[in-house]
């Protein structure tokens, strides 16, 4: 039981997909503008992640290794389409505000990454827990960032005005603000880890990439140059 709990909570902080594994950054940066939107995104991603993890785990002995990436993509895309239709039908405002990012969950490195690194190698229950846990971790990060950006950038929280009109710093809610808040978040994390004596040097590179390129040696040769 304890192990199951461990798998579930792994994605919250210790192996957080966004801040530690540095996956799925595009959607976090783009959608962390309002708390409502970010929560919607978080839930959508968690749903897709959990479902696809389960299905891929179920099929893991069946999917041929050579074509596993396209197969994963088909499974993930199916669930994404499902979510798209649900959101469009029941939450049209959310659908419009998410724009193309809802469909982009299909190429979200977190989903593909967990499929490749966990679901294809573990049992169904474990995969479900992992998917849910990673999803929660993602949601925590995106909502936290959104809270900061919405509060400072628009003066509202969940659409409710907190800071009087005219006292917000608009740019935080726009593109530069996204990069800035994310950068500060990672810096804070580095500082915390340094204080604890743990080495944490985040780098976006080949290591985190779920694709595990066919010829990884080439990439590494490039990096080493």
């Amino acid at each position: 039981m304890r192990e199951k709990w461990k798998i579930f909570t792994n994605g919250f902080f210790k192996d957080n997909p966004v801040l530690i594994q540095l996956l799925g950054c595009c959607s976090v940066l783009a959608l962390s503008v309002t708390v409502q939107g970010s929560l919607g995104m978080g839930v959508a991603l968690t749903f897709v992640l959990a479902c696809s993890n389960v299905v891929i785990s179920l099929l893991r002995k069946v999917i041929p290794d050579k074509v596993r990436i396209p197969c994963f993509i088909v499974v993930i895309a199916t669930f994404v389409t499902l979510v798209e239709m649900i959101v469009e039908a029941f939450l049209p405002d959310l659908y419009t505000s998410m724009g193309v990012f809802l469909a982009l969950i299909v190429v979200n490195c977190i989903v593909l990454g967990r499929a490749e690194m966990f679901a294809s190698k573990n049992g169904v229950l474990d995969s479900l827990l992992d998917g849910l846990g990673m999803g929660v971790g993602y949601t925590i990060v995106i909502v936290a960032m959104a809270a900061v950006r919405e509060l400072i950038g628009s003066g509202t929280f969940w659409g409710l005005r907190i800071i009087p009109e005219g006292y917000q710093i608009g740019i935080v809610a726009q593109t530069p603000g996204g990069f800035l808040v994310f950068g500060i978040a990672i810096a804070v994390l580095v500082k915390i880890n340094n204080r604890r004596g743990k080495e944490y040097k985040p780098e976006i590179g080949c290591e985190g990439c779920p694709l595990q390129c066919a010829d990884k040696s080439e990439c590494q040769k490039e990096e080493a140059k």
């Binding site: 710093i169 608009g170 726009q174």
Partner: peptide, 9 residues
């Protein structure tokens, strides 16, 4: 200046 242009237009 840009901060002001976009935040305090």
């Amino acid at each position: 200046r840009i901060l002001m242009m976009f935040s305090f237009t």
